[in-house]
Design a protein around this nucleic acid. Structure first.
Lengths: 150, 150
DNA sequence: AAGATTTAGTTAGTGCACTAATCATTAGGG
DNA sequence: CCCTAATGATTAGTGCACTAACTAAATCTT
């Protein structure tokens, strides 16, 4: 088998591993987030709001690297759950101000145990987590670099 | 801010980084796979078939860690593209034999350049790729461990 | 001030990915 | 044997995530 053909095998272990890891970790979050009635992406949105609110859709999208087309329906589901409010900004009526409701703000208390639980379940200590994070950042950066080049 | 609350911030850098990295890498594949008319998950399925064919839906699912409910429509799209055939196995009529068509087998030649292109675009050398792969395997294993425990 | 342009969000359409329910086929146990 | 269990695949339904097309509001230009 040629070197190129060998790559074709190895390669499946690369991007493939990343995809499976992402899905596996999200699946591991599922039972932990279920008591909060949140999916994983919804949890990420709530995290951004617990750090700063109100925020615009665009701002949340920039933070999570998601298109506003993805966030629009997701935010409506969070509103239906009673965790956030969606109101046009008075200063700029193009912008939608996403803010926490009292229920959404209170949910933060229940979420405090999530990170510790997940770190333990994933067999990660802070050091390994940081190393992993660094690798991910490098990948993200390289991936976006190539997209910008085209 | 308490240690627990600090975790809530850090944590966003973890699973969040993994999700974004996965999406970013898949997005980087997109223009490379476009000439083959394949999406990223479709590409993974073709990789498994280039290694061994025919295979059953269940077998492909086990290899890629995907539910057969996910694969069913995906395989129909690959059939519509003319890359694979779907036929009930004669030995066991519950099983569906997924096989490569001549066009699907020929596509392998065009795919040979993909891994090299992507490695370069993602700024990875074989060593870093292997290290990343090891981390992903550990995560996958830990994540599935916790799911099995429940 | 009027018209063109850029910006913020939404909608429509495609494709994954999952769970739950269903159906046909096969394998086992009494 | 027959009847039940288990197995392999499909369907329906929910929720992301993306692109492209569109609306409305704000800003820029002349």
């Amino acid at each position: 088998m040629s070197a190129t053909e060998n790559d074709l095998l190895l390669e499946r272990q690369l991007c493939f591993g990343l995809s499976v890891a992402s899905r596996s970790v999200i699946a591991a979050y599922k039972p932990v987030l279920a008591p909060l009635s949140l999916t994983h992406p919804q949890y990420l949105v709530m995290l951004t709001l617990w750090e700063a609110a109100p925020r615009t859709v665009k701002d949340i999208g920039a933070t999570l690297m998601l298109e506003s087309a993805t966030l629009s329906p997701l935010l409506k589901r969070l509103e239906a759950l009673g965790y956030i409010s969606r109101q046009r900004s008075t200063a700029d009526e193009r912008a939608l101000a996403i803010d926490l409701t009292p229920a959404g703000a209170a949910l933060r208390q229940k979420a405090l145990t999530v990170p510790g639980t997940m770190m333990e379940r994933l067999g990660l200590n802070p050091e390994r987590a940081r190393a992993l994070h660094t690798s991910m950042l490098a990948l993200i950066s390289a991936a976006h670099q190539t997209l910008a080049d085209n």
